[in-house]
């Protein structure tokens, strides 16, 4: 359960840090790094972990590819639809990411609950 919380916590903290940077309009290289980290990785990681693949490489590759895809989709719809606003786009990406994180937490809770149920053989009373 502890490990299951690691990525949701990292993603939410990254999201909060970026939100503070954008709202406060801090001009620092950290903001660039944080933007790239959150948009290209965290937003994808929120969903890549839902597939619960054992391979860490597969998870990271899917996270980056999903990060690119989610951001292209949202920004492209707004640009082609002539309603472009980076704030709206960021809000949508953060909303999408939050949904992914919530789903991850629900999944972790479900798996944790399943692990708590003793197997039939273990549940047998001692003779």
């Amino acid at each position: 359960m502890k490990y299951a919380l690691f990525w949701p916590v990292v993603i939410v903290l990254s999201m909060l840090a970026l939100a503070i940077m954008v709202v406060g309009d801090f001009q620092t290289p950290i903001r660039t790094a944080l933007t790239l980290w959150f948009l290209l990785f965290c937003s994808g990681m929120a969903y890549a972990r839902l597939l619960s693949f054992p391979s860490r490489i597969a998870q990271i590759v899917l996270a980056v590819a999903l990060g690119i895809t989610i951001n292209v989709a949202i920004s492209e719809i707004l640009v082609v639809g002539k309603v472009w606003s980076s704030d709206v786009a960021l809000g949508l990406v953060m909303g999408t990411t939050t949904i992914g994180v919530v789903l991850q937490l629900l999944d972790a809770r479900r798996q944790h609950a399943r692990a708590q149920i003793p197997l039939e053989s273990e549940a047998q009373p001692e003779q």
Binding site: R31, T32, S75, E76, S86
Partner: peptide
């Protein structure tokens, strides 16, 4: 335009003038 909208998004969120950095 997919690649370009993505980078315009990154540039604006990062508070940069352009994507050169």
């Amino acid at each position: 335009p997919g690649f370009f909208t993505l980078n315009a998004f990154i540039v604006q969120v990062a508070g940069l003038k352009n994507a050169l950095s």
